[in-house]
């Protein structure tokens, strides 16, 4: 589903350092992959490359069999409709209620209202927030806000869900709840890629772990752990 070959990314001049060096990685449909590593390891750069927010300096990224580095700018939105994205800071719109925040992702791709009314409650139920649909984001806890952001990423039924430090702003217990939610989503067939440095969560989940360090891929283990690597 996602194939990366000899990927390099360099910001600015060579002296400023290379964000990613010669990364090759294949992620199959239905996998759950943690991308871990200390700050500055290149996790976020990799996520941005997947979303085609930036383009690599060298190498190729194939998603759904297509080299996304060769996409034209106007084709990018259609790639993103197949990738749900969750951020550390939730990125919810504070002036709208939870229902509208989730519905927003469907509205802006032109989904009919009837369909929106059907899909949003279903996805809110899945993340356990069905009865909070009319609340505003600031009336919710951090964990609940992150669940809203997961619901928004999922409502369009993407093939891949990507999360960049999704538990960075949450306490351990709430983090565990979010990770369990990702696991549940993965069981239903969605490929899940989580960039994080939450060691205890990674170790607990027993999933594939890809470790980046200084822009290089240093380890790729099935049912791996993060803690032992350091």
């Amino acid at each position: 589903m996602i194939e990366i070959y000899h990927l390099y990314k360099q910001y600015g001049s060579e002296s400023e350092g290379t964000a990613l060096k010669d990364i090759s990685l294949v992620i199959d449909r239905g996998e759950f992959v943690f991308i871990v590593g200390p700050s500055g390891a290149g996790k976020s750069t990799l996520m941005k490359l997947f979303m085609r927010e930036i383009v690599p300096t060298r190498g190729s990224i194939k998603i759904f069999g297509r080299d996304i580095t060769k996409l034209k700018n106007r084709q990018v939105p259609f790639l993103r409709r197949n990738i749900g994205m969750v951020f550390q800071d939730f990125r919810l719109l504070s002036d709208r209620n939870i229902f509208d925040n989730v519905a927003f992702a469907l509205q802006v791709i032109g989904t009919p209202k009837r369909e929106i009314r059907k899909r949003v409650p279903t996805v809110l139920e899945m993340v356990g927030l069905k009865d909070k649909a009319l609340k505003k984001p600031d009336e919710l806890s951090g964990g609940e806000q992150q669940r809203v952001s997961v619901a928004r990423a999922l409502v369009n039924r993407p093939a891949v869900l990507m999360a960049d430090e999704p538990t960075g702003n949450l306490d351990p217990q709430t983090s565990a709840g979010i990770m369990d939610l990702f696991h549940e989503i993965n069981i239903r067939g969605t490929t899940v890629i989580v960039a994080t440095h939450a060691k205890e969560q990674v170790d607990r989940m027993q999933k594939r772990v890809v470790i980046l360090e200084g822009g290089c891929l240093v380890s790729d283990q099935e049912r791996g752990v993060y803690s032992n690597a350091y």
């Binding site: 994205m85 990125r91 802006v108 791709i109 369009n156």
Partner: peptide
């Protein structure tokens, strides 16, 4: 920014 991430086209924005 959210619109861009969820796949809204530039013209839609």
């Amino acid at each position: 920014m959210i619109m861009k991430y969820v796949g809204a086209t530039e013209w839609f924005i």
